[in-house]
């Protein structure tokens, strides 16, 4: 395995790097001497970003820090993909009218969400993590790109978000914000995590652990697993003795992922009720005859049997014991 990995890695990495260096040298030669000031385009209706700078210096003066400045710096993009007009459309009518939103072909504040989406996806459609944006919950509910991204006034270092990511999400998902106020929670407010560690706001592929393509908007771990396993790798397995409910239904069968009033993000304040709600012989289970009922040796009134995980320590999966004792 190691040898094959190393061989493949060397081949797959060395060749692209050499190719990249060659291509970059060629590109640098091509753009050497070119100025960042974009030339006025020859295409009809386009006036070039210099014309925009005259009236919008507050936007243009800092625009070199914007990811979209690449289109100007490149010097190779066609007018309809360059600078201001790359997003807002040809500016000749706007200039001729001496301003006014209605003369801007793509004035985002006047556009319908789908129009905004189409405009942005004109360049960003092909990115793998946006492959499901057309059927995402956000799109279905009229949340367009500009609902979350601020192209000209972003306070974030990456992704041009309109606010810090958690604030952005909280501004609509107030109930989730309340869950992160609870004593047991993932450390989003402390800055250790971000919502996008687990969620893909652009829409996600169907989860492999839930029926009905639920939960939605979850950014899966690379093995198509529950997002929790990106960090909690020790719960990943494979195990000889999987806990079927965990492997098939996912972590949420026992845990609430954002925050909980109960320890360890559990759905119940004590473990035995959590376990007994499934292990009561009811339901189908993987053996057709109901989920196993607890052992007759257990006496629930004995405190040691109230702490199920004090003995069943490997509750997420075990290699040595079918009852998860080691």
């Amino acid at each position: 395995m190691i040898v094959s990995m190393a061989r493949a890695a060397i081949l797959v990495t060395t060749l692209p790097i050499l190719w990249a260096c060659g291509a970059a040298w060629a590109q640098n030669q091509a753009v050497a001497g070119s100025s960042a000031t974009p030339p006025a385009p020859a295409a009809p209706g386009f006036v070039g970003s210099n014309a925009c700078k005259t009236c919008h210096p507050d936007i243009f003066l800092n625009f070199y820090k914007n990811a979209h400045y690449k289109s100007i710096a490149s010097g190779k993009e066609p007018p309809e993909r360059t600078g201001c007009e790359g997003c807002h459309g040809p500016g000749q009518a706007h200039v001729a009218a001496r301003g006014g939103k209605s003369t801007i072909p793509h004035a985002f504040s006047l556009m319908q969400p789908k129009q905004v989406l189409d405009t942005c996806l004109g360049c960003h459609a092909n990115d793998f993590n946006r492959a499901n944006i057309r059927r995402s919950e956000h799109t279905l509910n009229g949340i367009a790109c500009t609902s979350c991204h601020s192209i000209h006034h972003s306070p974030t270092p990456k992704y041009l978000l309109a606010k810090q990511q958690r604030d952005l999400c909280y501004s609509c998902h107030g109930n989730i914000r309340a869950q992160f106020d609870m004593p047991s929670k993932h450390r989003v407010n402390e800055g250790f995590m971000e919502c996008s560690d687990c969620h893909n706001p652009h829409g996600a592929f169907a989860p492999t652990w839930g029926m009905g393509q639920k939960p939605r908007m979850i950014e899966q771990a690379l093995g198509n697993e529950d997002a929790c396993l990106k960090c909690h790798v020790d719960k990943r397995g494979p195990f000889v003795y999987e806990h079927p409910s965990v492997a098939i239904e996912g972590c949420e069968i026992c845990h609430t992922p954002h925050g909980s009033m109960n320890a360890k993000l559990l759905r119940r304040p004590v473990v035995f009720t959590l376990c007994l709600e499934c292990h009561n012989g009811g339901g189908s289970g993987t053996r057709n005859q109901g989920v196993d009922i607890q052992s007759a040796r257990h006496n629930l009134l004995d405190p040691k049997f109230q702490f199920c995980t004090a003995c069943h320590v490997r509750i997420h999966g075990s290699n040595a014991d079918e009852y998860f004792l080691r």
Partner: peptide, 29 residues
């Protein structure tokens, strides 16, 4: 300012073993 109320109620049938007195054997409840 924000306010949120989250209500949850669940009800499930239980089946477990327990001894009703300290010295008796556990029985299915």
């Amino acid at each position: 300012a924000s306010y949120s109320k989250q209500h949850l109620d669940t009800l499930d049938g239980l089946a477990f073993f327990s001894a009703l007195t300290p010295l008796s054997a556990s029985q299915l409840q």
